[in-house]
């Protein structure tokens, strides 16, 4: 195996650092945003703003019309969670985030993360405000009663001093760091990767 020249090493390291910066910067920008809490439609909380038991419903960013049951909840922070369960069991959760406190730069970060800018929420039955909206899917049964959570639930994240959204959430079990970590795949990948690196270093040292 030929030795690498200094120029080649510098080139590889530069490429690696540049790629890392490109990949990490959106994550860092996203991590610095303080996201409000949107309860899952699997166990929604908050005050019911409106229930539409039937009829046709639209979803922001989606040109399809859906029939089914649609419930909008007002969250404790004034944002909205919309839970649509269509007649064929497809659920769409739309999180509506009022843009009042969001900067333009943050709006662009959110857009890159799949959020949609809605200039006038009144067209969607909400207050005449601008919103960021994001959809996620779930499976449901259309004959489930609305709600499930108590409006007294609190799920507050505390930010650490560097502004990233890390920290604990308050649940009825006390403070937790999130849901349980029930996967060990990162650890397995870590072991094998580190082991491979160690073997490569060992081979280099014997040359």
């Amino acid at each position: 195996m030929t030795k690498m020249t200094t120029k080649q090493i510098v080139s590889i390291v530069t490429t690696f650092v540049f790629t890392a910066i490109v990949l990490v910067s959106p994550i860092t920008a996203k991590a610095q945003l303080s996201y409000p809490n949107f309860p899952s439609c699997l166990n929604p909380s908050g005050t019911v703003k409106v229930i539409n038991d039937s009829g046709s419903h639209g979803v922001p960013g989606d040109t399809s019309n859906y029939t089914g049951k649609d419930i909008v909840y007002t969250n404790s922070d004034g944002n909205y969670t919309q839970c649509l369960c269509t007649s064929n069991g497809d659920g769409i959760q739309t999180n509506w985030w009022k843009t009042g406190s969001i900067t333009e730069e943050e709006t662009n970060t959110l857009k890159a993360d799949g959020w949609l800018y809605i200039p006038d929420g009144s067209l969607w039955g909400l207050e005449k405000d601008s919103y960021m909206a994001k959809n996620s899917k779930y499976a449901c049964t259309s004959n489930t009663e609305s709600g499930g959570g108590s409006s007294n639930n609190s799920s507050s994240n505390s930010s650490s001093s560097n502004g990233s959204v890390q920290g604990t959430s308050t649940t009825r079990f006390g403070q937790v760091l999130g849901l349980a970590t029930t996967g060990t795949l990162p650890a397995v990948i870590g072991y094998i990767t580190l082991g491979a690196i160690a073997l490569i270093i060992s081979r280099r040292l014997t040359k």
Partner: peptide, 16 residues
């Protein structure tokens, strides 16, 4: 219900 949620979404733990 069946869904994939964020690891931080503790709202699913709420009592019912």
């Amino acid at each position: 219900y069946v869904a994939t949620v964020d690891a931080k979404d503790v709202s699913i733990l709420a009592d019912t």
